Simulated scan of single mutants.
Amino acid sequence: MTNSNVFQNLSQESMSLDQVFHNIVRYMKQDVIGNYRLIFGTDSQVHTDHTLFITGIVIHRERKGAWACIRKVKVPRKMTNLHERISYETTLTEEVVSLFSEEMKQQLIDIVLPHIYKGASFTIEGHIDIGSGSRNKTRVFVNEMVSRMESLGLEPKIKPDAVVASSYANRYTK
């Protein structure tokens, strides 16, 4: 299983967590009065001889763009059990969130804090690639996975609001 803390995006091939954090700080400092959402989410795709997991980290400035990167984890087998796969997606999201120390989160809060009366805001979300619709096979896992995100202090989002997991990360699992 390849599981490293190497991140990448379209313009940077290999970033450390420190580089990711630096990019997030730099992005937020461009507009300190922005409404920011730091979003984490994972999606997976079963391939013939492995399962590929992509965890996305996105700093979204509402109505004004975003900066994002991904981390890839490859499991050398087909993970066909849906609960196992959804649970592992959630575990990988939790793992990446846990790399962000309380000091790092506080640094991000401190960027917008002096500007909250001018409309600035900052939230941290955990996007889970599951839905509660009656036709969605993952609906039985919603309470379990949402509770896991809440236990980390994240605001959980499921489909259709879990865009980092269901759209951004999904794009890189193919």
Rank of each mutant, 00 (worst) to 15 (best):
N9E: 04
G131M: 03
F7Y: 10
A66F: 11
R85G: 04
N5P: 03
E125L: 07
G133Q: 12
V112C: 04
F141W: 08
G34D: 01
V58M: 07
E13S: 10
T91F: 09
S101P: 08
D43L: 02
V32L: 04
M104E: 07
I158G: 01
V6W: 00
H22A: 15
R61K: 15
I57Q: 02
S101D: 08
S134D: 14
E95H: 06
Q12E: 15
S101L: 08
A165H: 01
G56D: 00
E62P: 00
T173G: 07
Q106I: 10
M28V: 11
L38T: 00
D43I: 03
R85D: 03
I54T: 08
S132H: 07
F141I: 02
N170A: 11
S44E: 04
V97L: 10
V164D: 00
D129L: 07
P114N: 00
N23G: 09
R63W: 09
L17T: 00
L17D: 00
V6F: 04
T2W: 15
A169W: 03
S101K: 13
G119H: 07
I109M: 08
H127F: 02
L113Y: 13
K137W: 05
M28G: 06
V20G: 02
T51Q: 12
I124F: 11
E95S: 08
S44I: 07
L52M: 11
T51M: 10
I158L: 05
I33G: 06
N3F: 14
N81Y: 14
L10A: 09
I54F: 10
S151H: 15
E13F: 12
M79E: 10
S98R: 13
G65L: 06
K29Q: 15
D129C: 03
V164C: 04
S167H: 13
A66N: 09
N143D: 14
E84W: 11
V140R: 14
F21Q: 00
S16C: 05
H115I: 02
S147V: 04
K29A: 07
A162K: 01
R63D: 11
G126A: 12
G56F: 03
S167M: 14
R63Q: 10
V96W: 00
Q12P: 02
K78L: 10
G41Q: 02
S147F: 11
I116C: 09
T42S: 12
T173C: 15
M15N: 06
Q45Y: 10
L82S: 08
S147K: 14
T80D: 09
T80E: 11
